[in-house]
Amino acid sequence: MFIEITDIQKQYLDKDNNPLNVLTDINLKVEKGEFVSILGPSGCGKSTLLSIVAGLTKATSGEIVVNNQKITKPGKDRGMVFQQAALFPWLNVMENVTFPLKKEMSKKQAEDQAKKYLQMVQLSNYLHHYPHELSGGMQQRVAIARALAMNPDTLLMDEPFGALDEQTRSRLHGQLETIWTETKKTILFVTHSISESIKLSDRIIVMGTKPGTILQDIQVDLPRPREQYKKEMLEIEEHIMGYLKKEIDKVVSEELANASNT
């Protein structure tokens, strides 16, 4: 197995120093080249899980092995795309994309590499623009090119299209699918959108809250592109909704309880 997540637990201490279970008993295996979505309501710890795989957050216990290497810190073998593009505003598009390449190759090589991936996200004409001159969707595409430019085996995406409008999001879905087919990356894709996860992924990991656990592991076997299988996609959506309904109700009733307490 390419990614092996074994018995991950994550606890935070709340402000009264009581331990708060964010993730409990997370076990997950992902094959090389698989596109896996992690789906769940807000607060289920899906972003925390991705952050642990990235090496940005330490798990309380358990271990993660990617490509036979135990994860202890962030590394270039795992490119990460965040909900906000997180481009460096003082660098232009080209400089942002070559940022991770500075040490390992010549300037010329780095720029060629960057151009290749910027072309993949159709931004070849914006090499010398600064982030503040680009739209949200374009910034996110630069961020994807930047992660791809390191040529990582794994791409970790934390609600990468969550802040974009519906039209842009749908176009980027198409682009991401193409990129995935061309580059054969293993993708872990965190989202709270059921339809997004069905449209994109081979497998959907459905998570529940309080504590964050894996509820269901759903294989999506529809051929791509999936736009033509509206009916089948809807069936899967209803199937997943069945699992998530309870979880969402749980979140809502808790929020209502909190609201009435304050």
């Binding site: 940005l56 795992r78 965040f82 460096f88 992660a147």
Partner: peptide, 11 residues
């Protein structure tokens, strides 16, 4: 976020 992003890029 800048620091996190840079860390995932090996910095």
């Amino acid at each position: 976020l800048y620091i996190k992003a840079a860390q995932t890029m090996g910095s």
